[in-house]
Design a protein around this nucleic acid. Structure first.
Lengths: 207, 207
DNA sequence: AAAACATGAATGGCCATTCATTCATGTAAT
DNA sequence: ATTACATGAATGAATGGCCATTCATGTTTT
């Protein structure tokens, strides 16, 4: 006597993987990687503890999957928007806005990125610089393009600038999550940061 | 028959506290807070596991102490140097250089700051925003001063700018630690970041 | 010989991971 | 279409290892 649409045990995999990813993102964000318990994730995903191991090898594998999948999403979305644009100034604006929107919309993701970047990094460090550095690489590319067009100062090191900009964005979103302080809107923030960076990067400042 | 200056067990407390702090900084930096074992710290400090609990309440207390003491050192040192200076542009330069020097010199500290800021934050969140926000507050103060002198754009939000700048510096030093990439010197980096920020913040850009 | 310090083996709790069992669904035989 | 059998997804209690913390004991200092 199950209500229509209900499925008991044994139902086809369907979207358990996805459900676990979503739950894990939430739990990692709330408690941090090390403090999060598998059983927390299982409960959040409405799944048994053991089920998680049908989809992931271990706890770290979950974190990695969350990180890579989510970063991939943002990167693809941003790349898509950027492909329609040619002005490096406008491109930088798009990157900044998209990043902040993504972080604001998905606070959990923001946290996971921060955690993965700092803590775990340590343990596994190397073999996963893929999706993430691909993402920040977008910034460097924009800057290089601007330089070859004579719009951005040629004495700026794109690899340093990408870090400075990413760091700025990351710290701003960290505070959005971590503190109770009132904070500026995405637009205000994006404008301010864009303005700080652009005017410092443009060859011929016009404000 | 100990050589002169040698002291066996039971020697007067002397500097055990300090020794543990130094050891803990090193170990936390290398392994991260959660992965670090008390016995690692004890071994590094050449002290018994139990001894640590004569000086600290628990593992987290060690991290907190490391964080607060080290941040305090930097903050005081920087404040001291800044007190000799009045030009907001030069002041910003000093802050940037001092921060980068401190992080480069003490990679361990850089890591601990990052860890404390992200992971643990989570757990205890509030009651320790003291030393750290005091430190980043220096940036906001410099900017405000520059604004009232008409040197920095008045439309810049000091609290946002401080985060952007701190984030940029933090991300740059994160990469110094985390990656194997060749990276720029402190001076190069400081110049670049200062230049990016200053030209974006100055009312009348002159380069 | 107290008091103060230091030691490190033992304790105890926590939690990732495993695995024996259950059960819905699918297939084959009657 | 009813029964019998097979499959493997899902479960969650039990296992086992790790490690922070404690404390009974030893050592040094006063």
């Amino acid at each position: 006597m199950k209500s229509p649409g209900f499925r008991g045990q044994g139902m086809k995999a369907e979207n358990k993987h996805a459900k676990i990813i979503v739950a894990a993102t939430k739990v990692f964000a709330k408690k941090g990687f090390f403090t999060a318990r598998i059983s927390d994730i299982a409960k959040e995903a409405k799944v048994a503890d053991g089920t998680i191991y049908l989809y992931f090898n271990n706890k770290y594998d979950i974190l990695l999957s969350v990180f890579e999948e989510e970063v991939k999403k943002i990167a693809e979305n941003t790349a898509q928007l950027l492909s329609l644009e040619t002005d490096p100034r406008r491109m930088l604006e798009i990157f900044i806005i998209q990043h902040l929107i993504a972080m604001k919309k998905n606070k959990n993701l923001a946290e996971v990125i921060q955690i993965e970047l700092r803590q775990t990094n340590k343990v596994i460090k190397d073999y996963r610089d893929n999706k993430f550095s691909e993402y920040t690489g977008i910034i460097a590319d924009i800057i290089r393009r601007g330089q070859s067009l004579g719009i951005y100062r040629s004495d700026i090191q794109p690899d340093l600038a990408k870090r400075a900009l990413f760091g700025a964005l990351d710290e701003v979103s960290r505070v959005w999550n971590a503190s109770l302080e009132t904070h500026y809107t995405v637009d205000e923030t994006a404008n301010q940061i864009l303005s700080m960076f652009l005017s410092g990067i443009q060859l011929n400042p016009e404000n």
